[in-house]
Design a protein around this nucleic acid. Sequence first.
DNA 1: CAAATATCCTACTAATCCTGTAGGAATACT
DNA 2: AGTATTCCTACAGGATTAGTAGGATATTTG
Lengths: 152, 152
Amino acid sequence: MKVSQRGLYALKALLHLAGRWEEGIVATREIAEREEIPEKFLESILVVLKNARVVESRRGREGGHRLRRPPAEIVVGDVVRLLDGPLAPFGDATELTRLVASEPRHAGLFDLFLDVRNAAAAILDHTTLADLLERDRKILVARRRRGGVPET
Amino acid sequence: MKVSQRGLYALKALLHLAGRWEEGIVATREIAEREEIPEKFLESILVVLKNARVVESRRGREGGHRLRRPPAEIVVGDVVRLLDGPLAPFGDATELTRLVASEPRHAGLFDLFLDVRNAAAAILDHTTLADLLERDRKILVARRRRGGVPET
DNA sequence: CAAATATCCTACTAATCCTGTAGGAATACT
DNA sequence: AGTATTCCTACAGGATTAGTAGGATATTTG
């Protein structure tokens, strides 16, 4: 499994929307500027996210995007799969299962790959956007305690 | 992390050599034929494996390749890293650690990626070629018991 | 020494993926 | 009507992937 720049942008954008969940609709430009994502590129990503019903959009003036569900109900694994394909290091879970069951050679190898994909899925499929926001917060607090650098 | 066709070929070739570890040297052509890998492509892969001191080669007639160490001492994680780069889904472990420690935004996300890479590393770095051969054997036995199809 | 055979090295190619850009059409708010 | 924003299509340059081709180099056998 590999997370592309595009996938990373998608996650950052969603985290941005999650952080401002109460505010409602946010425009592409604003996300792009704050998260340092090329605006036109982000546009195309948001369309994908919209078609997958992760996000909903409003056009025209005062338009923009917002999460379709609360941050605690959006799973990181789904977003990664949507943008960057299956979590398995080779092929996908179904293909690997088939190979383990039918390949005369190297079934063990595919079985190993299946273990890796299951380990990744176990982590990514039970982490939500809300979890990540919480995690951000905790890391920041810990960093501050460890001799953070509050300016002056 | 993504295992390419090239990486898969490398692992298959190494498993082939591991299976015939006692026999000593095996020619590229033979591996290519038995494992159904394009010969010239396999050649280039074996050079990489040789430069990384995983395999040793002898030229000329009766030449070929063999593992430099016994199968139980060759770790899958190292092979994957060699052919397909870091195990992390984004960047590598060092970069992710740095990002978690210094990024003002989304440190939690990079921390999550670090968890994924650690989970993958935990699996791949403690599985050897010998483990995989054993695994192959077990799968075959289990398959046979479950109503295998012994011809006629 | 010569022939045969295998690895090793360099270069090239075709296809696909990745990371964007550009321009405009459709839509919705003021 | 005017303006701001999403949405759609097309394209482009660079990197990566999966090989191919041809020959130089080394080594064993006759």
